[in-house]
Design a protein around this nucleic acid. Structure first.
Length: 865
RNA sequence: GCGAGAGUGGCGGAAUUGGCAGACGCACUGGACUUAGGAUCCAGCCCGCCUAAGCGGAUAGGGGUUCAAAUCCCCUCUCUCGCACCA
């Protein structure tokens, strides 16, 4: 005979029990099953830094709920996890602690894997991958060679962004307002031989598809569009006086060309020295150029900048007015954008205006606003709005926006210009002078030049016996046995490329590899598996990757498509960018930032001084405002941690950490557990109510709530990922269970209603609170695990109210309420409203103008004021 | 400066399409049970007037559209994020 005791909710034991079961039974393993609809859910994989942090917990919890929900909805769900395991921290750890990067990385992976398992995430661990393994990056090397053959990977000497602390080059996308995205060190410029990926080959497609990704947040698409920065304009030639050469400029404002009165050139531009050569100013120009080169980076990060310039004692000619234009070298024209030269129109560009004022240069108004008349003598700033062209020859009287085309045509017809398009996006520099990355599979031969490593010799394995001293320079370059090789072409002595690839290359295709993680035949991706799983249906990760990782991955996808390796245009159908986890900072006036437990009492743990509570900021190690997930799990369990992360805020918003919030989540689970235990003996052998029996009031109410909750939770998860409102709906259901009088133990129908309600609460909670619900489900006597149970359906009639409250307003103000049957006719509701006791009293002597009835909501009576 | 988004009780946040503002939770207050309560259960909880019923006010501030606005439009303020001389 079975005896049921009222058991206490003990999350740790329950969670460990189910996690073990999921692991040994491989519950979440999936294979391609064409009979089922697939759903590929992916969270951004982590860098194995040591331990998981709360940001991971939140990201992966959101993903796990969706994965489990879709599974219950009958989808074949691919939900993988892996490690973005190349990168600098491993190398820095090696220098600091004399531990090999691979050992450090793998130890971290093992630890973090345990932590993720402890959270109960439903990953198919058989698909786990780690990007620092040769079996992963060998394919990346193969792709590299393909890219090289097609001109999509090339080497070029160029000015690069260099971080002295990380001792390596950074891509443009990795520079954040002049500083290194990783360590915050100010970025300097260097000229180096670099490998580039020709992302610009796909620039138009990358831009076009920004309009074809309705499942992405607008914010991210806008950021990508701006980053690509496409602008239409003209390249115009300005002939040099005393020379047969011409200066070419790019402009989007050819409508203002008649107002161009001088020429500006970026100081770094080679033309500057060319023009100054042999002139009186040559020395001064040389000095100026040197000065600008030095100040350049600082200037970009500073808020105030001085517009400086130096006259080159040279002139060019305006191709439409014939007027001579003095030429200046300046510090505020970008050498890398357009042609590095700008035609200056001081009347209609604020920068040019300021410059003209400073150097007392001529100004001509060419756009006249509709409402006032501009006068160059009195103008205080440039006029940058629209208007009518003046002083513009045959174009006078035209709207300036319309003149854009006309003037472009004219310039083309006289051979002085042509329509062009400029982009802000540059090619992706992927060379890194570091050790812990995927080797670039190229060989330099003095005779044959750059030669790819033959495919048969792949992978080029990263050697393990390297010396990491931190002294600077590439550690690989110092390793003779790696560098010295033979040229595959001529057999002569040659040297290997010692740069490694940017780690963003690995993360640009890991989602493809997850589809066939063990494929070891060329090209490492099984087309059949990819065609089944790709694209990713839902991608979830931090907003910080809005440009970098997401743009690179889109590019890589299009490229692999053109190689015939995959069949999709875009990797991620839907994107959810979750907010950051924040917490207040704590500071001791003497000992600086404190960890939460060091200042928990309000006093510093060392000196007992009062703790200063600071701003709420993103959790970070440097501010010490971090919560250790281990601590949370140990005290409350993974289920509570999951509920809290979801309940406190909708996923896309920042989440402010609160200890009380955690208590509240824990209390809710306990409350659910207790009401279940209160009933379990009585309902264990009773089937949940399924028919449409007439029920008495409290039971009818209970049952209605049950079905309403299914409806609400389904919509909240399915359409909006609003888990916070889904959880509150389930809380309401549990509250209703508490409020419903306990049916007598021979009241079979009553208990069947309760069983239906309890069962529903458990099933609806299952994706969010997987361990506790499995346990309760089992205690209820079910043999099939909850993870295999289908998502419940709601009955529309049961969920609908029979009686509804209609609000009565007079002139939009709430005055009374009436209760009517759900199917009551509009006319009789209006009549009832007008007949309502309170309303009659208030309407006395008023003139009713109109009665508006909003079905099932309200009656608004409009009276004369 | 430009671009995008946001602003609702003491707090986190609700309010599918314009239709009862404040769901749910936290904190707080009171009560019950109790040797005890930091457990649990029940109740109260936007602000003002009032014992109460009731009345008035309130979604950053101001104006507008509408029978009706947190929601739509215009202006102002504040905050967050992104880009910052892109010609």
């Amino acid at each position: 005979m079975e005896i049921f005791l009222i058991m206490k909710y003990e999350p740790i034991a329950i969670e460990e029990k189910w996690q073990k079961k999921w692991e040994t039974e491989k519950t979440f393993k999936v294979t391609e099953d064409t009979a089922k609809k697939k759903y590929y859910l992916l969270e951004m994989f982590p860098y194995p830094s040591g331990k998981i942090h709360i940001g991971h917990v939140r990201n992966y919890t959101i993903g796990d709920v969706v994965a489990r929900y879709k599974r219950m909805k009958g989808f074949n769900v691919l939900h993988p996890m892996g490690w973005d395991s190349f990168g600098l921290p491993a190398e820095n750890a090696a220098i600091e602690h004399k531990i090999h990067p691979s050992k450090w990385t793998n130890e971290n992976i093992n630890h973090m894997k345990k932590q993720l398992k402890r959270m109960g995430f439903s990953y198919d661990w058989d698909r786990e991958l780690s990007t620092c393994e040769p079996k992963y990056y060998r394919w990346e090397q193969l792709f590299f060679i393909r890219m090289y053959e097609k001109g999509l990977a090339y080497k070029r000497r160029s000015m690069v962004n260099f971080c002295s602390k990380c001792d390596t080059v950074l891509a443009n996308e990795q520079v954040e307002s002049g500083a290194c995205w990783r360590c915050g060190t100010e970025v300097t410029e260097k000229i180096l031989e670099q490998w580039f990926f020709k992302i610009t080959a796909y620039i138009d497609e990358l831009l076009e598809y920004c309009d074809k990704l309705p499942g992405w947040p607008d914010r991210v698409l806008t950021m990508q569009r701006n980053w690509i920065g496409k602008s239409y304009g003209c390249e115009i030639s300005f002939p040099l006086i005393d020379s047969d050469k011409a200066i070419k400029v790019f402009t989007t404002r050819q409508d203002t060309i008649f107002g161009a009165t001088f020429m500006l050139i970026a100081a770094e531009h080679p033309l500057v020295m060319e023009l100054a050569k042999g002139k009186n100013v040559e020395k001064d120009v040389q000095q100026f150029v040197e000065k600008v080169k030095k100040q350049d980076k600082l200037m970009r990060t500073s808020e105030y900048y001085d517009k400086e310039g130096l006259f080159l004692e040279s002139y060019c000619q305006n191709p439409v007015t014939g007027k001579h234009m003095p030429i200046f070298a300046t510090n505020f024209v970008l050498a890398e954008y357009g042609t590095g030269c700008v035609m200056a129109v001081p009347t209609h560009d604020q920068r040019d205006f300021e410059f003209a004022q400073k150097f007392n240069l001529p100004m001509i108004v060419v756009i006249q606003p509709h409402n006032k008349t501009l006068n160059v003598e009195t103008m205080k700033e440039a006029y940058v709005e629209e208007g009518i062209l003046v002083h513009s020859g045959q174009f006078d009287g035209m709207e300036n926006m319309k003149a854009l085309d006309a003037i472009a045509d004219y310039l083309e017809s006289i051979g002085k210009g042509k329509r062009t398009i400029q982009y802000r996006l540059r090619d992706w520099g992927i060379s890194r002078q570091r050790y812990w990355g995927a080797p670039i599979p190229m060989i330099n031969c003095a005779k044959c030049g750059i030669v790819p490593v033959p495919e048969a010799e792949l992978p080029v394995v990263l050697p393990s016996d390297v010396v990491l001293s931190g002294a600077g320079g590439s550690p690989l370059a110092a390793l003779k046995i790696f560098v010295e090789t033979k040229c595959p072409k001529c057999g002569g002595p040659a040297s290997r490329e010692t740069d490694t690839m940017d780690t963003f290359v690995e993360s640009s295709w890991y989602f493809d590899r997850f589809c066939s993680p063990h494929c070891n035949t060329k090209p490492g991706l099984d087309r059949k598996a990819l065609d089944y799983w790709m694209p990713v249906d839902q991608y979830i990760g931090g907003i910080e990757h809005a440009i970098l990782h997401l743009l690179y991955s889109r590019f890589y996808t299009k490229m692999l498509r053109d190689f015939g390796i995959i069949g999709v245009d875009e990797p991620f159908l839907n994107l959810l960018t979750q907010g950051m986890v924040c917490k207040e900072t704590m500071k001791c006036p003497e000992h600086g930032y404190l960890f939460p437990e060091q200042g928990a009492s309000g006093k510093c743990h060392i000196c007992q001084k009062d703790v200063i509570i600071g701003k709420t900021e993103k959790m970070s190690k440097s501010l010490k405002n971090v919560i250790d997930p281990d601590y949370l799990i140990k005290n409350y369990g993974a289920d509570t941690a999951r509920v809290f992360c979801l309940f406190a805020a909708p996923p896309e918003k920042d989440l402010e950490w609160s200890d009380q919030g955690v208590d509240g989540s824990f209390r809710f689970l306990n409350r659910t557990w207790r009401i279940f235990m209160d009933y379990v003996d009585e309902i264990k052998n009773i089937a949940p109510l399924t028919g449409k029996e007439e029920l008495r009031d409290d039971l009818k109410n209970m049952r209605r709530k049950t079905h309403q909750t299914i409806r609400k939770v389904t919509i909240d998860i399915e359409d909006r990922f609003h888990f916070n409102t889904a959880i509150s709906a389930i809380m309401e259901l549990v509250n209703t269970l508490y409020q419903t009088p306990h049916p007598a133990n021979n009241d079979k129908i009553g208990l069947a209603v309760i069983r239906e309600a309890l069962e529903t609460a458990i099933i609806l909670l299952a994706p969010i609170v997987p361990h506790m619900t499995e346990e309760l489900w089992e205690i209820l006597g079910n043999k099939t695990p909850l993870s295999e149970v289908g998502w419940p359906m709601f009955d529309k009639t049961i969920a609908s109210e029979e009686e509804i409250t209609i609000v009565i307003q007079i002139n939009g103000k709430l005055r009374s309420r009436i209760t009517v049957a759900i199917d009551e006719e509009a006319e009789s509701i209006k009549a009832a409203a007008l007949a309502d006791e309170k309303i009659v009293a208030m309407l006395k002597g008023s003139n009713v103008l109109k009665v508006i009835y909003v079905p099932k909501k309200l009656v608004n009576i409009v009276v004369a004021q």
